[in-house]
Design a binder for these strands. Structure first.
Length: 284
DNA sequence: TTTAGACCTGC
DNA sequence: CAGGTCTAA
């Protein structure tokens, strides 16, 4: 199945920008594609000549719409670029990584992923999420690939801290379990956070154990349509300190975040993603 | 209100 | 040390 788009889009930059953790890079006859799990389906994506090729375990029109939604192909990225093009540094990052998008992920999976991200690294986070899926999700097979769906909150809430520790989650295990219980009991409805304002949504998320300002902003940005969300991690702090603001060593990250949000405003999240990516790859 | 330290695990 | 959070002081 093919999907066309008009707004700038780069599959590789998007799927390798550290916002999602279940895509596996594959090659077939020297051609690059990505294999991942969305909902209960294995999805294979590749990009060529302004077209995205989609293959999946259940080949329906609804999967196509799901992918269009996930990749936000209807979003006008050029408009976002115009909005955040405020200085040469961000402009250079935009030029380099043109087409890198912010995804619209499932908020529940996104929440657990970023709870797992604290004091960790992409490789390990990916392993944690995959292991959780293998242990508690459903098996899916497609074209010789074998993957597992990400379990529901209800499913995950029935496990124990010890079992999660055995999976290698470390000190994040109790956070994941508590978060699962909160979501399973519907004490928080994550998708509802899409329709309320940013500060309100942030206040709600931050109450979940293991979720601080950084993790909450990641979930808001990568799954809850909160375009002004601005996750402040070590890399972003470095960029902002080097190129933007006079930040002291121990400036509260909430103050740092608010400075950046005041500067980039409505699409601060996109600015964050480009600055982060640029600075992180520069280090490698 | 602000600030060190601890916290699992693996490269 | 690694894309933080929690807790005690």
């Amino acid at each position: 199945m093919l999907i066309n788009y008009t707004s700038p889009f780069d599959l590789q930059y998007t799927l390798e920008s550290g916002q999602s953790f279940r895509w596996i890079k594959e090659y077939l006859d020297d051609e690059l594609f990505y294999q991942g799990v969305i909902g209960n389906d294995i999805i294979c994506l590749s990009q060529k000549h302004n077209t995205i090729k989609l293959e999946s375990s259940s080949n329906s029109e609804s999967i196509k719409n799901h992918i269009i939604d996930y990749l936000k192909l209807d979003e006008n990225l050029d408009e976002v670029y115009r909005y955040i093009s405020k200085d040469i540094y961000i402009n250079s990052a935009i030029e380099k990584y043109r087409g890198m998008k912010i995804l619209r992920q499932d908020p529940w999976e996104c929440l657990i992923s970023f709870i797992c991200s604290s004091n960790s690294n992409i490789k390990r986070i990916s392993k944690n999420i995959e292991d959780i899926s293998i242990e508690y999700g459903n098996k899916i097979t497609f074209n010789g690939f074998e993957r597992y769906s990400f379990p529901s909150a209800k499913m995950l809430s029935n496990t124990t801290e010890q079992k999660l520790r055995n999976l290698g989650l470390g000190f994040r295990a109790p956070y994941v379990l508590e978060a699962a219980k909160i979501i399973a009991l519907e004490q928080i409805n994550l998708k509802k956070l899409r329709s309320i304002n940013y500060e309100e949504a942030l206040d709600i998320l931050i109450k979940i154990p293991g979720v601080g300002d950084k993790v909450a902003n990641c979930v808001l940005l990568f799954s809850l349509d909160q375009t002004e969300a601005f996750p402040v991690d070590v890399w972003i702090q470095r960029v902002l300190k080097e190129k933007y603001f006079n930040i002291q060593e121990k400036t509260n990250i909430i103050k740092v975040r608010m400075k950046a949000q005041k500067y980039f405003r409505k699409h601060a999240g996109y600015a964050n993603q480009y600055l982060f990516h640029n600075r992180r790859l520069f280090k490698l």
